[in-house]
Design a protein around this nucleic acid. Structure first.
Length: 675
RNA sequence: GACCCUGUAGCUCAGUAGGAUAGAGCACCUGCCUCCUAAGCAGGGGGUCGACGGUUCGAAUCCGCCCAGGGUCGCCA
């Protein structure tokens, strides 16, 4: 099908206006609120007003021109709307046969000129993926699949932030455990997450005690129990703080920190008593000063010269990353390449960049600290003009007051060469909204470095974060929901179904894996990225309508009709191979509604890309499946006696299968023959 | 204070290039498995689309102002 029927009609109206009124007007159409008002509808008000003519007159003169089209059944003029009824037979004939003839329905070359880098997930390698960054994975995956379906060349990258300051204590803790032959008691990234929470808590305790000591001058505070606050200790410190000479704000702050840390420590030691106690004892015994050791690790790894420390860091972060990859692969989410922040730091490029910015006077000084003069850059290099920004843009800190370059520096260096890696003409960074100003800063820095050509190709695809119903999120207290956890919860739900069915264990396992992955993935994918999600674990593992399982189930029903039909000696292959000889006969609304939706698929893909709304694909999938289930209930296929009707229905079922196969590919969920 | 996002049914969300009577799912109530898998289908109740103005034939959708929630705005990433 070369042209959508509705576009053809819009073209006729457009031509009519040009010829009779010499006006260039864009023609709008919409779906009528109810089926008895037609299949599509053209409001005539604005057209009439534009050309200075009565609505009725325009309508009457358009009506015959549209009516004489083969694909049109009839046209009704109602209340200023031109309501179009398609000829169901001709329309369906085109749609069904077109869908069945194409190798992959919905595949297009709309975006074939694009070479796109999509960066997503990019989680810190110091613990498991949680539901927050997993949302980015899902969105990024859908986007990349959507672009591929539209003909673009896509390269998916993961930026490994292995230079985070909080990683150092984890490396130290991991090493302590390893040296003492302590084996992980859980999936490796989860294990690392536990070490992360513990070691950073120990470090915080030590540093708080140091701080209190220096502010109060009381040596008692850190004499013993460097990494621990017990009840007596806490009361003692509180006494010291309340009697010390401090300004109120500091006192309050220190008391609050103490209270908070005390509770974090206790919550951790009750959640993971064995590991927490072990790590604390090991640290107490083997580490003289965790704080300064941490600092040393950070500095050494940033420089990259100390082979031992580099190896330790790499081993840990590689393991965590492997855990992420394992998790993602359960949901059919894959990356083509991984870029490490440390590699960029070691390349020496950051220094050059800072020098260039310095020479061009784009840096504001404050002691050793350096800030990017964002607003000045944006104004004088016409960034504001180009992106229609009217407000002031705050400066971005690049180098801290100790002279250490911060994360944005590496990100600038990264983006300077990122696009080259794939010869890309577009770079989409799927990153949480909290990084908005950072991402803006990176693009401004590129402007400042005379690389606006790169900056203009970068899009920050931001998404809102996830909050939890009935649970809090705090990595430091091991409070998070992981995709792995959701996956296994969903699996339990699936097994409740499967245990009532007579499948082999092997079949059950396969079905459970596919259904749980789809269930979790779809529950996240269906929500508008702009919306802060209130995530309900129960909902994500729910198997009812508007869920991944609902999509999969609909597909198995369609497949089942075909396989049963074959058994009933209906020559499916023959019908499909001789498409053109099938005579279409549409008699039910359920058939018609489904066909109209099938026709929309290519447009849905196009619009999802244009509006940057991958979630609309999910909602469209639900619609298709709902329509199919209605068809399923009302329109028997195999038992239908009339040959035309039966064969039409077989085409409808096959076209639905093709549509769903296409959608599943974009959603990255696997299909099942039975479940 | 500035900027970004959000506010639609009891809950979770669709619907916003302006269009006719605002839709799903969950939850609640009522039906449907001698009939292609009931992870389904049919039906019911449930709404001043955050508030107020404006633009116009027409506004959940566009504009303005306000209210509420979340996020960011100089040493974390």
């Amino acid at each position: 099908m070369n042209e959508k029927p509705v576009d053809k009609i819009a073209g006729i109206i457009y031509q009519h206006i040009i010829e009779n009124y010499e006006k260039d007007i864009s023609i709008i159409w919409n779906k009528p609120p109810s089926a008895n008002l037609g299949d599509v509808s053209f409001p005539l008000f604005s057209i009439a007003k534009n050309v200075g003519e009565e609505v009725g007159v325009i309508g009457q003169s358009l009506k015959p021109k549209i009516e004489n089209q083969e694909i049109i059944e009839r046209v009704e003029l109602k209340g200023g709307f031109l309501n179009i009824f398609f000829n169901r037979t001709i329309f369906s004939d085109k749609v069904l046969k077109n869908a069945l003839k194409t190798e992959k329905y919905g595949k297009s070359s709309e975006e074939s000129t694009r070479r796109i880098i999509i960066e997503h997930t990019s989680s810190n390698p110091n613990g498991p993926l949680h539901i927050g960054n997993f949302r980015g994975s899902v969105i990024g995956d859908l986007l990349s699949r959507l672009y591929k379906m539209s003909g673009a060349a896509v390269n998916v990258r993961y930026y490994v932030n292995d230079l985070g300051r909080q990683i150092a204590p984890v490396v130290i803790g991991y090493k302590l455990l390893k040296d003492n032959n302590i084996e992980p008691d859980s999936k490796i990234d989860l294990w690392i997450g536990k070490i992360y929470a513990t070691m950073n808590t120990l470090l915080d305790i030590q540093e708080l005690k140091k701080e209190i000591k220096s502010k109060t001058g009381n040596c008692f505070v850190s004499e013993n129990l460097k990494y621990e606050i017990n009840q007596n200790n806490k009361e003692e410190i509180e006494k010291i703080l309340s009697s010390a000479e401090l300004d109120e704000k500091t006192r309050e702050y220190l008391l609050k920190s103490l209270k908070k840390l005390f509770s974090v420590q206790n919550s951790l030691s009750s959640k993971i008593p064995k590991l927490f106690g072990l790590l604390r004892d090991l640290t107490e015994k083997k580490v003289e000063d965790l704080s300064s050791l941490t600092q040393e690790y950070i500095e050494q790894y940033l420089k990259g010269n100390n082979k031992q420390i580099v190896d330790e860091y790499r081993e840990l972060t590689e393991k965590a990353l492997r855990g992420h990859i394992e998790t993602l692969s359960r949901f059919n989410i894959f990356h083509d390449d991984f870029d490490r922040e440390s590699d960029i730091a070691w390349s020496g490029e950051v220094k050059q960049i800072l020098q260039k910015l310095e020479t061009k006077q784009w840096l504001r000084h404050d002691g050793k600290a350096r800030l990017l003069k964002n607003n000045e850059i944006a104004t004088s290099l016409r960034f504001k003009e180009k992106y229609n920004i009217k407000h002031e843009i705050p400066d971005l800190i690049l180098v801290n007051s100790e002279g250490i370059p911060l994360y944005p520096c590496r990100d600038i260096a990264y983006h300077l060469h990122k696009l080259e890696k794939f010869n890309a003409n577009l770079c989409i960074n799927v990153i949480g909204k909290q990084q908005q100003s950072l991402q803006l800063g990176v693009r401004l820095a590129l402007y400042a470095l005379n690389r606006s050509d790169i900056a203009d190709k970068i899009i920050h695809f931001d998404y809102e974060y996830v909050t939890l119903v009935g649970r809090k999120m705090a990595g430091r207290e091991l409070e998070y929901v992981t995709p792995d956890e959701l996956y296994s919860l969903a699996r339990e739900e699936v097994y409740k179904f499967l245990n009532e069915r007579d499948y082999s264990e092997e079949e059950k396992a396969k079905i459970a894996n596919i259904v749980s992955a789809a269930s979790v993935k779809i529950s996240i994918a269906k929500i508008d990225p702009n919306k802060a999600v209130m995530f309900d674990v129960k909902k994500a593992t729910d198997l009812n309508e508007n869920s991944g399982p609902f999509l999969l189930y609909s597909f198995t029903r369609a497949k089942n009709i075909i396989s049963k039909a074959k058994k009933a000696n209906i020559p499916i292959e023959e019908i499909i191979n001789n498409l053109e000889s099938v005579e279409i006969s549409i008699i039910e609304d359920e058939e018609w509604n489904l066909i109209k939706l099938i026709e929309e698929l290519p447009m849905i893909y196009k619009r999802a890309i244009n509006t940057k709304r991958p979630d609309t694909i999910v909602n469209f999938s639900f619609e298709i499946c709902k329509a199919f289930n209605k068809f399923y209930d009302n329109c028997p296929v195999i038992s239908e006696k009339n040959k035309k009707i039966r064969e039409t229905r077989i085409l409808i079922v096959q076209a639905t299968i093709k549509t769903l196969e296409s959608l599943f590919e974009v959603l990255g969920i696997e299909s099942l023959e039975k479940m």
